[in-house]
Design a protein around this nucleic acid. Structure first.
Ligand SMILES: [Mn+2]
Ligand SMILES: [Mn+2]
Ligand SMILES: [Mn+2]
Ligand SMILES: [Mn+2]
Lengths: 220, 220
DNA sequence: TATAAAATTTAGTCTTGCCTAAATTATTTT
DNA sequence: AAAATAATTTAGGCAAGACTAAATTTTATA
């Protein structure tokens, strides 16, 4: 059976929160889902005790996805990212507008719809934010990108993706020309505040850690 | 507040069932919605007693839409028919495949999405089944079509629309060449069984009432 | 017009998914 | 290591929207 919309959103957030390897905490999930922690506890207990469990859960220790849970999460993420790509390409959405629409559509499109847009788009590898799109057989491609925040003076590369869906940040970056596929070069690093000076399109700008940690680079 | 998916489906069905002027009965609604009559009674009582009532309801007399209810119904119908048109045009769905997909998407697209597909399609007047699409300000255009079942020998015209969403019937009609915009001519009428003999694309076929009552014609 | 059949409503229950308040466990601070 | 704070879980509740079984009302039939 296909998981409910709520469950799909839980699984997707858990996937994202556990990408770093550590379990997702009740509170982090509650914050991401805009649901009270007590409710999250209830749901994760339920998901952990389904016939094929979707989560691995130990009281007070947070949760990780089982392989069944990961598969379900990747299904939703594939829908989301293909939809974003589709909306931008065919309806002229800008990259900061698509997220909310995809957030609702992802739960209701059929597998047939998924196949049709994937084919129409030529089976794209990345969405408009540069995020990798899980394959049709639900594997997440390897990500060889580095956060901009890890680069130092004289290192350079191409922007691959912007993580996190905050529309205001996306519009701000768009204004600075910081979009996927743009070449950048680090011209200076400031310790203590971790500011980076970078050159983009001949212009020099300075970015704080809260921005550089969300921009991912393919080094060159 | 936007009505829930369930409520939207109730309103849409009530709109369709009351197009002939008479109220929609509890049982008819239950059949159309695949919901037990007892549940339908509960829902229509609720909808009839909302702050601005969506339904006019009198016990045992069925329901009709108030103007607020009609507006909400037309919103959903506009979404549905624009979506069907868009899916056929941009993703190559055939006219017998689109209905189910639109049935789910209609509840989750934004008004922005609605505007974008309407514009991309050039503000179409009819969907792939020939059904009229409510306008952006939620008026249903006048329908000047006649059911094929009302035509008699030597009358002719163009197929405007096929009512009812049964995919099997649509595929059958497609096989016979009976699609919107096709010209037809009635060559004979058989009383008692109400069969019509018609000429389409040079071929003669005989159709029963259960089919002719679903095909709508612009007489010529 | 009395009875039978069909349609509709009432009453009570269930599931899903959320909430608040209170209790418990884990983590920091002193 | 105790006390304070933070995180998490438990307990109890609520709203939406469906269901079944039983009661009622309407309509059709004899
Ligand atoms: Mn899929
Ligand atoms: Mn979502
Ligand atoms: Mn629907
Ligand atoms: Mn609309």
């Amino acid at each position: 059976m296909k998981p409910s919309t709520s469950i799909q959103d839980y699984l997707k957030r858990i996937y994202e929160l556990t990408e770093n390897g550590s379990p997702a905490s009740t509170n982090d999930l509650a914050r991401e889902l805009n649901i009270k922690p007590a409710s999250v506890t209830g749901m994760i207990q339920k998901l952990a005790s389904e016939k094929p469990a979707l989560l691995e859960y130990q009281k007070h220790q947070g949760v990780t996805l089982t392989s069944a849970g990961k598969k379900a999460a990747l299904e939703v993420i594939r829908h989301h990212r293909l939809l974003e790509t589709w909306l931008v390409q065919t309806l002229g959405y800008s990259w900061d507008e698509v997220h909310e629409e995809a957030e609702r559509l992802e739960h209701v499109i059929s597998e047939d719809f998924e196949r049709r847009i994937a084919a129409a788009l030529g089976h794209p590898l990345r969405d408009p934010h540069g995020e990798l799109i899980p394959t049709a057989d639900l594997k997440m491609p390897l990500d060889d990108s580095t956060p901009l925040s890890a680069l130092r003076k004289n290192q350079s590369g191409k922007i691959l993706s912007i993580k996190g869906a905050d529309a205001d940040l996306l519009r701000h970056l768009d204004g600075l020309g910081l979009t996927p596929n743009t070449m950048i070069e680090v011209t200076d690093y400031s310790p203590f505040d971790h500011n980076l000076s970078i050159k983009v399109n001949k212009k020099n700008i300075v970015l704080g850690l809260s921005i550089t940690s969300k921009i991912f680079i393919e080094e060159s």
